[in-house]
Computed example of a mutant assay.
Amino acid sequence: MSRQLTIIQAIKEALDQKMAEDQRVMLLGEDIGVNGGVFRATEGLLEKYGSARVVDTPLAESGIVGSAIGLALNGMIPVVEIQFLAFIYPGFEQIVSHAARMRFRTRGQFHVPLVIRTPYGAGIRGPELHSESVESFFVHTPGLKVVVPSNPYDAKGMLISAIEDPDPVIFLEPTRTYRAFKEEVPEEMYRVPLGKARVIQEGNDLSIFAWGAMLRVAMNAAKQIEQEKGWSCEVIDLRSLYPLDRDTIIQSVQKTGRACVVHEAHKTMGVGAEIISLINDEALMYLKAPVKRITGFDVPVPQFTIEDSYLPTEQRIKEGIVETILF
């Protein structure tokens, strides 16, 4: 049985169902108990599961993540909520020095089954530290999985998969899409595998790779280009930034011969650069034009009055598509 849910509702349902199924699953974060989280992703779970499993923490990200690592090493499955991605910086050392390295450090004797959930990205009229998209920090760290659902169905299925994964997962939630739309989501538990992209729309003239909030923007641009120019774009939601679904990326480029990568993170050393490198390594002879990046700029996310000028827009994506196809 399916219902229409938002992304935030799908996330809450995944947490609820896994907590009901497995007594080891517990939640930690600032204001997640009484207040139900800054975006209400954990609303009602304190009353249902108690303060021993839904833990309101101090404002201390290093302590939150460090405590969660200790819990994971001792048989629990902690799910941490960080209020905004850029708030994670005080806990960054715990993630990259300990959570990500524990399996390697102990030669596989210990695992860290930890999920760190955090909203990320601009478009909500928040200050700079509430709007950053710095996924490349974590993608560059061996030992971490990094995933980004773009819709309610994937949000529930990927979160369940992340909670069941034996290793740490950074679970990035695009803030601007939390309540932007609804989608059919099965009531029962299901899993969306980590590391597998999804072809949203088939096409022949150009491949578009996007994730998170940029997926819907890219889809709208692709539809407009088809109406205006008659070109068909293959749109792929990467969903998993590490591990990347290399096969789907290469197969698409081999089919279309052209590609654009869309992300709101800063351009320099972003995930888009790695995708281009992968294409150059494994599909260079299929390319009819250089791969185009449509991204945020190499500046801090600006204040809300000019925020829209920072983010990739449908118009910028369309211009990138035209430039690539007419190269």
Rank of each mutant, 00 (worst) to 15 (best):
L238E: 00
E188K: 08
Q201K: 10
D237A: 02
D237I: 02
I225K: 01
N220M: 13
M189Y: 02
F209L: 15
V217E: 14
Q201D: 05
R198M: 14
N220D: 14
R216Q: 06
S240L: 08
D237E: 01
I236H: 00
R176N: 02
K182C: 12
T175H: 14
P243R: 12
V199N: 14
N204T: 09
W231Q: 03
M219A: 10
G230I: 00
V235T: 08
Q224T: 12
P174Y: 03
L206H: 07
R191F: 01
R239E: 12
R246W: 03
N220S: 15
R216K: 03
I208E: 14
L206E: 09
A218F: 06
W211M: 11
D205N: 15
R246S: 14
L244E: 06
I208H: 13
L194G: 06
Y190P: 10
R176Y: 01
L241F: 08
E187Y: 05
T175S: 15
A222N: 07
E234F: 00
I236N: 00
D245M: 13
L215Q: 01
D205F: 07
K182R: 12
L172D: 11
L238C: 00
G195E: 13
D245F: 09
Q227S: 07
L206F: 05
Q201P: 03
Y190W: 08
R239S: 14
T177A: 09
G230F: 01
G230H: 01
E234C: 03
R176L: 05
R198K: 15
V199I: 15
Q201S: 07
R239Y: 09
D205K: 09
E226L: 03
F181D: 06
D237Y: 00
P243L: 14
A210M: 10
C233T: 03
K182H: 05
G195W: 09
E228C: 09
C233L: 10
A210F: 10
A218E: 07
C233W: 00
D237G: 02
Q201T: 05
I200Y: 11
R191G: 01
V235F: 07
I225F: 07
Y178F: 15
V235M: 08
Q227P: 00
Y242A: 10
M189F: 02
P243V: 14
I208V: 15
E184V: 05
F181W: 05
V199S: 13
D205M: 11
R216A: 07
R191K: 08
C233F: 03
E183F: 10
N204S: 15
Y190H: 09
E228H: 04
E173I: 08
S232D: 01
A222V: 04
V199A: 12
S240R: 05
E228I: 11
P174Q: 04
A210D: 11
R216D: 04
Q227Y: 02
L244T: 06
K182N: 09
E228F: 08
R176E: 04
L172I: 10
R198I: 11
E173C: 11
R176V: 05
